[in-house]
């Protein structure tokens, strides 16, 4: 998958083999305590690694959403002003106005849990209990029509039963296979017969005015 020169790959492999042997070379820092790691290690992966015990229902999530999320994201995740849209947007990705939501775009539900837990609500991050994060994640599934029962309960145990619909539409970086990156000697003289202006920024006039003088 990764496109690194072979020499780098060999050097990396060698360093991985001897990494342990030279650990502690400078004798700097100290061993982290288990409770210190636990305090900071909150990340969650698509395979469920990192999820804490807990559970919450759609109905519970709806109450928290109304209080802590709806002001920016709207009652049903439709988004207020330019704050992110959370729900809807299905079948828009190939159109002129793609709407990238949890239901239409995000590949993994674990990303929702992790992000809400680490960074939401905006201005009061890391204030939610695990049960509240499960409940909000369940509500986000609900407003994206991915569950239809307000009594649906999401928990650590059943978390992996809800894959998101767009997961298969993510592909690895294949930019180098694009024609525009093919190595060629670029044209220097008489490269085209005619040049016409086809678009102007001034038409849109969205550049901020200078605030000087």
């Amino acid at each position: 998958m990764l496109k690194f020169p072979k020499a780098v790959a060999i050097a990396v492999a060698a360093s991985l083999l001897c990494g342990s042997a030279i650990a502690g070379k400078y004798n700097l820092g100290r061993e982290a305590l288990k409770e210190e790691v636990a305090a900071w290690d909150i990340d969650v992966r698509p395979d469920g690694q990192g999820l804490p015990e807990g559970q919450g229902t759609v109905a519970q999530g709806e109450e928290i959403w109304a209080e802590k999320c709806a002001a920016c994201h709207g009652d049903f995740g439709e988004g207020v002003d330019r704050w992110p849209v959370i729900a809807g947007g299905v079948d828009t990705l190939a159109g002129d106005d793609p709407v990238k939501t949890v239901g239409s775009y995000w590949p993994y539900l674990s990303t929702v849990w992790d992000y809400v837990n680490r960074a939401m609500p905006f201005s009061e991050a890391r204030s939610l209990e695990p049960d509240e994060v499960y409940a909000l994640t369940a509500y986000i599934l609900y407003i994206n029509d991915l569950v239809d029962d307000e009594d649906y309960e999401l928990s650590k145990k059943n978390f992996l039963e809800k894959p998101l619909p767009n997961e298969a539409n993510f592909i690895e970086d294949d930019r180098l296979e694009s024609p525009v990156f093919k190595v060629a000697e670029p044209c220097m003289k008489d490269c085209k017969a005619d040049v016409k202006i086809t678009g102007r920024a001034r038409i849109l006039d969205v550049t901020p005015e200078t605030d000087d003088d």
């Binding site: 992966r45 698509p46 990705l93 990238k100 775009y105 674990s110 993510f170």
Partner: peptide, 27 residues
């Protein structure tokens, strides 16, 4: 870790949506 985390900034953001609706990741 042994796998990527697929966090918010590498899934919902910083993925490159193509005309056909597919999206490149880890660009």
């Amino acid at each position: 870790g042994d796998k990527p985390w697929h966090h918010r900034e590498e899934t919902s953001k910083y993925t490159d949506l193509m005309a056909n609706g597919k999206a490149r990741r880890f660009t």
